[in-house]
């Protein structure tokens, strides 16, 4: 299973990559918001972990575009934010995020959330089969 991680903080990116890889994920990483959409189209991930504060383009804008396109309308997305305001969570959910984590989070929390997303996505996919 493939996860695309869009995060600009190099250290956080390294931490998440390590945690998810060890859980058995194939982790692709991308450091800027500007080209994140084309990266999604290129990588075709099963789950996207998306930071809100990104250089070039905000995570919210990217999410809006993902939900507008047919191919990515149901793509599971986990939003990460360091701002810690409930307004960010509301915005993310309203835009169609599947899960939301405020930094800092525990590693177990992250792993469970991403697994949960895939289960939902697989359930939907299974229904189709």
């Amino acid at each position: 299973m493939r996860v695309l991680l869009v995060e600009d903080e190099a250290n956080i990116l390294e931490a998440i990559r390590f945690i998810l890889s060890r859980d058995g994920w194939e982790v692709m990483a991308h450091g800027t918001g500007a080209t994140a959409l084309s990266e999604v189209a290129r990588v075709r991930p099963d789950v996207v972990v998306l930071d809100v504060m990104l250089p070039g383009r905000s995570g919210f804008d990217i999410l809006r575009d993902l939900r507008a396109a047919d191919e990515t309308r149901t793509l599971p997305v986990l939003m990460l934010t360091a701002k810690g305001q409930s307004r960010d969570r509301e915005t993310a959910m309203a835009l169609g995020a599947d899960a939301f984590l405020t930094k800092p989070f525990s590693n177990a929390e992250l792993v469970e959330t991403v697994r949960g997303l895939l289960a939902e996505g697989a359930g939907q996919g299974g229904g189709a089969v």
């Binding site: 250290n11 956080i12 931490a15 945690i19 504060m53 810690g84 305001q85 405020t102 930094k103 800092p104």
Partner: peptide, 21 residues
């Protein structure tokens, strides 16, 4: 305030993640 929060939480995220690892 939101900026301060962001600037504090960002290093803390790395610190927490790596120390848990």
């Amino acid at each position: 305030l939101s900026q301060v929060s962001h600037e504090l939480r960002t290093p803390m995220t790395s610190i927490r993640a790596f120390s848990e690892i």
